[in-house]
Amino acid sequence: MSTASYTVVGMTCGHCVTAVTEEVSGLPGVTDVSVDLDSGGLTVTSDTPVGDDDVRAAVEEAGYEVAGR
């Protein structure tokens, strides 16, 4: 089991959270996604490590950015 944390920039509402959750959940191996609107926190749990570039691409596909990576 692997867990990684990120900060998502640009989310402003529940729809934003849903969009990020759906995109990141679709990555191979991901078993759980937790998104906090207030902090922008994104926690990804997976069976095996998921690449930062893959998470970044999924977040960008949802229309947002990952900060600081």
Score class of each variant (00 low, 15 high):
Glu65Cys: 03
Met11Thr: 05
Ala19Val: 12
Pro28Gln: 02
Gly63Pro: 07
Ala62Thr: 06
Thr3Ser: 13
Gly51Ile: 02
Tyr64Met: 07
Pro49Asn: 01
Val8His: 03
Ser46Ile: 01
Glu22Pro: 12
Thr7Asp: 14
Thr31Cys: 10
Asp52Arg: 14
Val8Lys: 06
Thr12Val: 15
Thr45Lys: 13
Cys16Pro: 05
Leu27Cys: 11
Ala19Arg: 15
Val9Gln: 14
Val66Trp: 00
Val55Trp: 07
Thr18Asp: 05
Thr7Gly: 02
Val20Gln: 00
Val44Arg: 12
Leu37Thr: 04
Asp54Thr: 02
Thr18Ser: 11
Gly29Trp: 00
Gly51His: 07
Thr18Met: 04
Val44Glu: 13
Ala57Lys: 10
Arg69Asp: 11
Leu37Pro: 14
Ala62Gly: 08
Gly63Ala: 09
Asp32Thr: 10
Met11Ser: 04
Thr12Pro: 13
Val20Gly: 02
Ala4Cys: 04
Val35Leu: 05
Gly68Phe: 02
Asp38Phe: 04
Thr43Gln: 12
Tyr6Arg: 11
Asp47Lys: 11
Ala62Asp: 08
Gly26Thr: 07
Cys13Tyr: 04
Cys16Glu: 08
Cys16Lys: 11
Thr18Cys: 01
Asp36His: 06
Ala57Pro: 09
Ala67Met: 08
Ala19Asp: 06
Ala67Phe: 03
Ala62Leu: 04
Val17Asn: 06
Gly40Lys: 10
Val30Asp: 08
Met11Phe: 01
Asp32Trp: 00
Ala57Leu: 07
